[in-house]
Amino acid sequence: MKKYTTIFFILFTLLSSAQLPKEYLNQPANLKPIIKLDNSIMQCVYQHTTYDPDLEKYEDTYEILEIGSNYSKYGNYGAYQLDSALHTYNGATLTNGQYAILFKKYDPNYECIIKNKKNENLEHYGKVFIDYYIYEEPIPQIKWELEGGKAIICGYTCHKATATFRGRQWTAWYSDIPVDNGPWKLGNLPGLILKAEDATGEHIIEAIILKQDKASIGYRKFLYSRTTREKYNKSLKEYKEEAHKFFQGELQPQNPDGTPMNIPKRKLFYNPLEKE
């Protein structure tokens, strides 16, 4: 934990344009290995617009669904782009300085959902503050109502379906691409979901790119702690609403005179996809 904390603060300071020793920047980057699961047949990039009613702000993030024969992965597009960029090194040594530049450019986060078609389970890889967690659950069998509407999303004709799932009323637009999958945990429709939005308008996820890159599906081997979906969601909510409480103990910053520094109370941008 201390090692990861050290790496986190070093990288954070580096990205904040602080001056780091040249020797460190020239050292080989010690990256977590990637555990490969499958080869990706196609990818779909989504634009996810989220509204935080407490902060009254909208934020756009980009997420990618990688579909393989047995596995699929839904995660951050910046992380995908960073991994693609790292592939170009292909065994050549990457330094900490080079890695920091790439990290700053793509701003990745390594949270993702991996669905395993064979055992019909999904694994959620997440992060609360600086700690990594994993929980497992069966792939949700969402009960959709097929509606009559049609729309063109990302160049494909899509059909409308609605369902209530974990506290939100979802409208999904699924295409004729025969993939039982979609953004986040949504799926169980006879076609790839290209757009999903909840009735409150707080989450709109829409496909903007469909492609067939040659890529592998996997996850970075961080030290994950096993937990449950409910515990993870509760912990994440606490962190987003009162992040200052997490800077305690050895993580609490200090004033120049050595006394503990007061971290102001601040809510981070957050609106959970599942409310129950």
Binding site: I41, M42, Q47, C154, G155, Y156, I177, A207, I208, I209, L210, K211, Q212
Partner: peptide, 11 residues
Amino acid sequence: NFEIEEIIVKA
């Protein structure tokens, strides 16, 4: 062989 029409929607 599976092929899809690759599409990029501009923002």
